[in-house]
Nucleic acid binder design. Structure first.
Lengths: 128, 128
DNA sequence: TCATAAGTTCGTATGTTGCGAACTATTGAA
DNA sequence: TTCAATAGTTCGCAACATACGAACTTATGA
């Protein structure tokens, strides 16, 4: 078990961020971490959007997020506490994470998954 | 040779956009298309950032961009004219593409490729 | 020392990507 | 027509990436 490695802020790349967040599972994890009040364990995500993620897969996803520089993970006894590094990234790439998270929420709103409340949202998008 | 397919605007996904732009070659192509005055052919990108991209690889990259909804391609005689669909996407996911392109340019500026001018930029980022 | 719990790593099956070779349009001669 | 040239596409395979069950490591508490 190698010790946890986090890239320094100047080693974080846009490609890495985009690739990490182009996976729906990782994007969901990151979104939940981003609006969490306090750190979350990995196992808090074994249930994600009505779907069960295997433990080993989850571990890989957390590693991907960590190595992309999106989250910081810290051992705390037997478990692991994960937080986002959004302030750092906001400094380096202003507006990037915010735009991505907002886009994800626009999309899931349109697909009627969360907040299936407002009526004209999906219809309006057809103006292409 | 199947006819060119473009997704309708409501079928464009954030995951698809992020994945397409997480590749440095595609990101470079898209960035150049985005600030181009008029449509560009595929072969205009055979030379990209001091690097030669094989024709077949380039074709795959254009297909990826097209199917992600990022560009529109149109046959014009023997060649193909490519333009971005940024206005449509801006409507659906406001600020997303702008933030990504800006982040890419911040990054390449930091790596001393274009505008290798300012001095303390890299050192200051170490405050992580 | 043992059981349990939280994550990680390994092995393998399956998917994705890069690129040369062969192919398909389209155009413009002859 | 037929031929050559040009712009892209598709095929096939090797290399790389990903998902997940099984086995492992590390920390904790009885």
């Amino acid at each position: 078990m190698r010790p946890l490695t986090h890239p320094s802020i100047e080693d974080i790349t846009v490609e890495g961020i985009l690739h990490a967040l182009s996976d729906p599972v990782r994007a969901a994890i990151y979104a939940r971490l981003a609006c969490a009040e306090r750190a979350n364990t990995c196992s808090a995500f074994l249930q994600l959007d009505d779907r069960t993620i295997p433990k080993s897969t989850l571990s890989q996803h957390f590693r991907a997020l960590r190595e992309a520089g999106l989250i910081r993970s810290e051992r705390r006894g037997v478990e692991m506490l994960n937080t986002t590094r959004c302030e750092e990234i906001q400094q380096r790439f202003p507006g990037l994470l915010q735009a991505i998270i907002q886009a994800h929420s626009i999309q899931s709103a349109g697909h009627g998954k969360p907040t299936p409340r407002r009526k004209g949202a999906a219809a309006k998008a057809k103006a292409g």
